[in-house]
Design a protein around this nucleic acid. Structure first.
Lengths: 150, 150
DNA sequence: GCAGACGATAAGCACATGCGTACAAATCTG
DNA sequence: CAGATTTGTACGCATGTGCTTATCGTCTGC
């Protein structure tokens, strides 16, 4: 059993993520979004969220950092931030119809680029295999990746 | 042609990369390496490199930042940094035998964890498909990812 | 009702990183 | 030979981000 001469997973994935991020940035700017703002829109689209702390945690951001992002998105009418009637400390976060439109447009443009990239370099079978495997690993809690107990 | 309800590639890959990186750090620390130092060892192992600027570029670092890393690795005898006899401005960089030992030990530990993770959550077919696809995308120049001309 | 807990916000410190400048040593060019 | 170029190095500045603390309004358990 000789060690397969392959590169580390992280050594392949991290630069790939950097390149994909770099490719996204101009597209997002065209839609008037930063990466953080886009993350927020994506996350809020799944379902409305109680509390900004939960949102920050969900997108891996610092809770004190997304305040400006949320204020900006709120000012521009892309998200609503209403106090919870049941507990007025927390703010209920949700996409507005306009926020959903912006999100959809940005994501469509991004996934179009991604699909072009995959189609150009991978076979259809490889494409689905990659996406399937990624979705499995993506669904894992972070601890499962960081700490695989033997 | 309805949009497939999948997450963005980058939205899956970047957090995965973060988790893998977080998993690597303790292992690297056990071997007395930082992430940058490990990147240097990995890159130098492929073949000796002319000039530090080329190295910095190869691992995506700032050329003024890796100086301390290289000095430290040199002090600890893991790499050699000899002036090129043909052009004494440049320093020829290479792994020492001890540097190779450290690199091999660290990489073995890291890939062991990675393989455990993959084996636990993916089928063998998925595992190879993922690695194949990643190696294809990893071999692309960054421009091919960032700017897929139609 | 009141003391402590909790959410949102703001302000500060710390650190890593990127970018530009500057400079010395060595090399190349006219 | 003189000036321009290149490599490695050091330093300062700006930025982005995380982490901590403080404040204010609100809620919950006693």
């Amino acid at each position: 059993m000789s060690a397969p001469p392959r590169r580390d997973l992280a050594a392949m994935i991290v630069p790939l993520g950097r390149a994909l991020t770099a490719a996204e940035l101009p597209v997002l700017r065209e839609h008037g979004l930063t990466m953080w703002a886009y993350s927020v829109l994506l996350r809020l689209d799944e379902r409305p969220l109680r509390s900004q702390a939960a949102l920050a945690d969900a997108i891996g951001a610092d809770k004190t950092r997304i305040i400006d992002v949320l204020s900006d998105l709120g000012d521009r009418g892309l998200i609503s931030r209403t106090p919870d009637p049941a507990d007025r400390r927390v703010r209920l976060l949700a996409l507005t119809p306009q926020g959903r439109r912006v999100r959809d447009a940005a994501q469509a443009a991004i996934q179009l680029r991604e699909e072009r990239l995959l189609a150009r370099h991978l076979t259809p079978a490889q494409r689905t295999a990659l996406l399937d495997a990624l979705q499995v690993l993506d669904a894992l809690p972070a601890e499962a990746v960081s700490d695989p107990e033997p």
